[in-house]
Design a protein around this nucleic acid. Structure first.
Lengths: 318, 318
DNA sequence: ATGAAAGCGCTAACAG
DNA sequence: CTGTTAGCGCTTTCAT
């Protein structure tokens, strides 16, 4: 009845009755039931956001971009976490889709067949984020990690480094880290250079792991002149160790990470890195959803952002 | 009809029809509509989790505890973020309650009157977390930040430090930081000591801020012999600066933070700190919700966990 | 073991 | 401007 209209500021309601209803609602402590509302109106102003982890520092920033873009909107983000597991992704997705959200923002381009099917069948805008190396189901916004790896490789060669070591997460399910690695080795190969040593880790405090792995690697392969880390956290740990040991960085030895996490500002030396455009990815993804929902003819397909190399203090300039 | 029974493994259904339904569902890519289900059954297996921030490192860990406890359950956490604003908290809460969750886990004990009213009226279990200095609406799990501050103050005095500086976030809306500060000054007062210098910051990279503030403070008050930081991140930044400048830590100058964030493991020196029991808080909170929902006579009221001081390398032992 | 019917609390469309 | 009437897609209860 009229009550519904008042609470949603819809249609014409006389200020008098409006007042009355509002007051009654307040004194009764009335909270509308969105479940019933959603069922009746067949629309749920929620955007499902599916990411691998909240601990990773990268994703909270993407989330920030999304929230900000959705702030002045009816839409609200709801996040689900997959822990980098395709199985869990499938479950989370199923769970979220069963609430009939207005759109989905999901990290990565690789999903199980079932997940892809659900997304395709959902009949709502789907934006895959972070990565553009592959074919999106609907829309995608991100960076090309393969290209990012390649460019870092190129920059390193141009700076004159030749004996290169790599450290990173186990490359199994982190597709983006894998693609960076592939692009990196590819660029090196083009310059006739091969990675001389490499090491992978799976869990633990990234800073400490970076430190340990770096120590192990420098003992094993003392003549390395560059260390490429798959993320800034292990890179920072490594750099701390190198600094303590008195390595001449970046001349005797250079190093670089990936992500440009601002968390690390304040460390003694600034690690060379590459911005992964996290905020903007979030914002753009949200905007695409909004556009689609407004019926704008937002172009489907990929939006590829371009990360820049930030040489910091640890990459000799060529 | 029968379909409903199959999908929920309820009631007696012949294996034959069961098979048929399941297959049909799969080929049709059928995803049940939880909205309708929730409306009909009057129950939503969601737990609203309301926290100030996801960027803070503290809350993701609490979330981890909650998720793990809820893993084998029907319940699913859904998080809302308040950005430390009571207004936003109210909005988020209203929004979430309108989805009729089965329970609420919310950070802190201070809420607007409206928020308290909503929580009290919701008729669902409510667990306030992180803090026990105050009166909970329903149940609470956390630590006494006042006591944490007091204990750190006591430990510092016992170790013989006397000229103490404090650095922290602006104490406006972060009630827990404020309570720690109050407890801290109280303990010092009991020992006849007063804080000699203090500085507050609002935003920016915590590590960098800690560094800057420490530098400023040590220039302004060079005879300080202890620095108490309201969190580990600024503490770590400060410690890095002190180490670079060659301060004799912890003898000439001690320092300590709060939270015991594992993120920082791997820094050259380990900051003295206090564990804030984040994981366990999350787990216990979830368990209380579960208990209440199962009708167990879980005792209402506060659960106060006891944080321990971890002296690291920066607190002289007494 | 299965079908039929009622209704969850709202919104949408239409009357008044 | 305001009231009335149908559902939304399920679950629940009751009959078969």
């Amino acid at each position: 009845m009229t009550v519904s209209r008042v609470l949603r500021n819809r249609g014409d309601v006389s200020p008098a009755t409006r007042e009355k209803v509002l007051e009654a609602a307040k004194t009764l402590g009335y909270v509308p039931n969105k479940i019933a509302g959603a069922l009746a109106s067949q629309q749920v102003n929620l955007v499902a956001v599916i990411i691998p982890s909240v601990a990773n520092m990268v994703f909270p920033e993407v989330l920030g971009g999304i929230s900000r873009a959705l702030e002045e909107t009816e839409l609200q983000p709801v996040v689900g976490v997959t822990d980098y597991s395709p199985d869990k992704e499938e479950k989370v997705l199923y769970e979220m889709l069963s609430w009939r959200p207005s759109g989905v923002i999901i990290a990565g381009l690789e999903h199980s067949d079932a997940s892809r099917a659900m997304l395709a069948a959902a009949g709502i805008p789907v934006v895959e984020i972070m990565d553009t190396d592959g074919a999106p189901i609907d829309a995608a916004v991100g960076i090309s990690h393969r290209r990012a790896g390649r460019e870092m490789g190129k920059a390193i060669l141009e700076a004159g480094y030749r004996k290169i070591g790599f450290m990173g997460t186990k490359l199994g399910l982190d597709h983006r880290a894998r693609k960076r690695f592939e692009g990196f080795t590819e660029a090196l190969a083009k310059g006739g250079v091969e990675i001389q040593d490499q090491e992978f880790y799976s869990d633990g405090s990234a800073l400490a792991k970076g430190r340990e792995m770096t120590e192990a690697m420098m003992i094993r392969s003392p003549d390395l002149d560059f260390l490429y880390y798959s993320n800034d956290m292990i890179g920072a740990g490594g750099l701390l160790w190198l600094t303590e040991k008195g390595y001449d960085v970046p001349d005797r030895l250079g190093c670089a990470g990936f992500n440009d996490v601002q968390l690390l500002q304040g460390l003694p030396r600034k690690l060379a890195t590459m911005d992964s455009c996290r905020q903007e990815i979030g914002r753009r993804a949200a905007e695409i959803i909004l556009g689609r929902l407004n019926g704008d003819d937002t172009p489907t397909g990929k939006v590829e952002l371009t990360p820049r190399i930030n040489p910091g203090d640890t990459l000799r300039l060529s």
